[in-house]
Simulated assay, not measured.
Amino acid sequence: MASGKLIVLTGPSGVGKGTLVRSLLVRHPELYLSVSATTRSPREGEIEGKDYYFLNKSAFETMIEQNQLLEWAEYAGNYYGTPRTKVEEKIDQGLIVLLEIEVVGANSIKDSFPDALRIFILPPSLEELEHRLRSRKTDTEEAILRRLERAKEELKVSEEFDQRLVNDDLEIALQELEGAIFSD
């Protein structure tokens, strides 16, 4: 059986990664979305094992120590990471595995998976990014300001990724994403 491939999607918080991934999975149910682990609290409607594996800090740190994560990073005061085993199993089964992760982790994936296609999702503007973050109504003012400052830093490293696409019009962004994923 042919080996699968790893597709890493990243970009600043609020850029629309989740919306793009959900739309992509509706169109392409054959894709496998890796579920990340985090120490942050669940948002309303999020489901354990589907949206994230919600862990306490001690359990997450044990996973780090035991090399059970492909990548991990601390973001906005919480840990986020990708459990290794399931991703490797799905790739070995010939599937295309999607990782929707934050920028530091996405950049570090090249060490464990040099053949991964790393795609950076850009906002149309910082003003639009701020609007999207505020519209979610999930963060405090302090958290929004931290996310915006972090976004400015993250945008500086976007050139280090294999591909970049702007999420301005959802349909156009989806078509560009499909082109990147399914081109050989």
Rank of each mutant, 00 (worst) to 15 (best):
M1H: 09
S3F: 09
G4V: 04
L6C: 01
L6T: 09
I7E: 08
I7M: 02
I7W: 08
V8H: 07
V8C: 06
V8A: 04
L9Y: 05
T10R: 01
G11L: 00
P12T: 10
G14V: 01
V15Y: 03
K17F: 05
K17A: 13
G18L: 01
G18C: 08
T19K: 06
L20E: 03
V21M: 07
V26Q: 13
R27N: 11
E30C: 08
L31D: 15
Y32R: 14
Y32C: 04
L33Q: 15
S36M: 12
R40I: 01
S41K: 15
S41A: 14
S41T: 15
P42R: 07
G45Q: 13
G45A: 01
E46F: 05
E46L: 05
E48D: 05
G49M: 01
K50N: 02
K50H: 02
K50G: 02
D51I: 00
Y53M: 00
Y53A: 06
Y53E: 08
F54Q: 02
F54G: 07
F54C: 09
L55G: 03
N56R: 14
N56E: 11
K57C: 03
S58K: 06
A59C: 10
E61G: 02
T62A: 11
M63R: 13
I64W: 02
E65F: 10
E65M: 03
L69E: 03
L69T: 13
L70E: 08
L70Y: 06
E71P: 00
A73P: 01
E74S: 14
A76R: 04
Y79K: 12
G81R: 03
T82N: 02
K86I: 04
K86P: 02
K86V: 01
E88N: 13
K90P: 03
I91V: 15
D92W: 00
Q93A: 11
G94T: 12
G94C: 07
G94S: 13
L95V: 08
L98A: 05
L99N: 00
E100L: 00
V103D: 01
N107P: 00
I109N: 06
F113A: 08
F113G: 10
P114Y: 06
R118S: 14
I119K: 03
F120D: 07
P123F: 08
L129W: 10
R134Y: 00
R134G: 10
R134M: 00
R134C: 07
R136K: 14
T138E: 14
D139L: 15
E142I: 12
A143G: 05
A143C: 07
I144F: 08
R146D: 12
L148E: 13
R150Y: 04
R150L: 12
A151C: 02
A151D: 04
K156S: 03
K156C: 01
K156H: 10
V157N: 10
E159Q: 12
E159M: 04
R164F: 04
L165P: 11
L165H: 06
L165W: 08
V166M: 15
V166S: 01
V166A: 06
N167I: 02
N167Q: 02
D168S: 15
L170H: 12
E171T: 12
I172Q: 12
L174D: 10
E176A: 06
L177C: 14
G179Y: 00
G179E: 10
I181Q: 14
F182S: 07
F182V: 06
S183K: 15
S183D: 13
D184P: 13
